[in-house]
């Protein structure tokens, strides 16, 4: 009899112990894992550990149209997975009531490694990022207050917040942290380039290999491997657009930052046309022609681009072959990142 008690007691102890451990999820959810060929993250994962429940809540919120004033626009509307979470085919995006923005939607991809967000780097913490599109009059045109109110009124949400954060309260911080948990998980690291680099039994073709050499000589100083951006702000000589977007200057008010924009990653560029901060180039060929023939000299033009790049027609062919190895089809088809039925 006592022995039985002892066994039960032990069992209960085990259960209690299991319950008290944090970030322990019963499933096989692996949480956030940095790819072997990537550096350490800029986002402090320890501050907001990714749990299965938090990730799933973040994903639901990412595809939640109630984020917008009239419940029509979700994050996923301008960040489509099929185009590597950009707004394929749109130079600038149309948000609520088909109002147009002024910049090309950047990809939701490998954001855990970005030290700042937006093309001008105006937002320095991923947890603060979602507020911008929600309250922007041409994107979602909603208030944070009202988003929280709407979510609180839908019975499923308090329960999902409870699962993710322990209690059913829906707060600004929980909302954005759940979105961050989803966004940091949206990692693209399975392109052909990655598999070659990790020695997973793949080789570059002759053309790709030649292109990679050219890339390392001519492009790598800004589009730094393995994320293919050094996350600095540069003027790449495309000249002011029709709306005279001053880019980074709007954030720093430093004249030396005029017309500078964050160096975009080149990953998945096969899926993310059009290119540049205002989507002015429709093809990669057009982009390369810009770098060789059309650089506009301006006071803040990046010194590395003075006089343009020297690339022959064959160089460009090789380079384009290499750039296509940065496309990651597993990323754009990964069911974990898609809207769930």
């Amino acid at each position: 009899m006592y022995r039985k008690h002892l066994i039960i007691l032990l069992c209960v102890n085990v259960i209690l112990f299991a319950c008290s451990r944090k970030n322990d999820t019963p499933s096989l959810f692996a949480g956030f894992k940095a790819p072997a060929n990537f550096p350490t993250t800029a986002y402090d994962i320890v501050k907001n550990p990714v749990t299965k429940e938090g990730f799933e809540l973040g994903r639901k919120l990412f595809y939640e149209p109630r984020m917008s004033r009239n419940n029509t626009i979700s994050c996923g509307d301008c960040h489509l997975q099929t185009s590597a979470f950009t707004h394929h085919g749109h130079d600038v995006s149309h948000g609520i009531d088909d109002r147009l923005g002024s910049r090309n939607a950047p990809p939701i991809m490998n954001l855990a490694w970005h030290p700042a967000f937006m093309l001008d780097g105006g937002i320095f913490d991923l947890d603060l990022q979602p507020i911008a599109p929600i309250i922007n009059p041409v994107e979602m045109d909603e208030t944070m207050d009202n988003v929280l109110r709407k979510l609180r009124g839908i019975p499923a949400y308090p329960e999902l917040f409870r699962k993710a954060f322990g209690t059913p309260e829906i707060t600004t911080a929980r909302l954005t942290k759940a979105l961050s948990q989803f966004m940091v998980m949206v990692v693209s690291s399975n392109s052909k380039y990655d598999r070659v680099m990790r020695g997973e039994g793949m080789q570059f073709t002759t053309a790709e290999s030649a292109g990679y050499k050219i890339f390392q000589q001519q492009c790598n100083s800004c589009h730094k491997e393995p994320l293919f951006s050094d996350f600095t702000y540069r003027n790449n000589g495309i000249g002011a657009g029709p709306n005279n977007d001053l880019g980074r200057y709007d954030i720093t008010l430093n004249a030396a930052d005029k017309y500078k924009f964050k160096v975009p990653s080149l990953r998945n560029l096969g899926f993310t046309a059009p290119y540049m901060h205002d989507g002015r180039f429709y093809t990669l060929g057009g982009v390369l022609d810009h770098y060789t023939n059309e650089i506009q000299d301006m006071p803040t033009l990046d010194p590395l681009l003075k006089g343009g790049l020297r690339l022959s027609a064959t160089d460009k062919e090789y380079l384009l072959a290499f750039l296509q190895t940065l496309n990651d089809t597993t990323f754009i088809t990964d069911r974990r990142f898609s809207e769930q039925p």
Partner: peptide, 20 residues
């Protein structure tokens, strides 16, 4: 939190979201 919460603390918006 409180008056610093971009949602509830500040009607009429006392926070720049685009330039944190």
């Amino acid at each position: 939190t409180g008056v610093l919460d971009p949602a509830t603390g500040m009607d009429n918006g006392m926070y720049w979201s685009w330039n944190s």
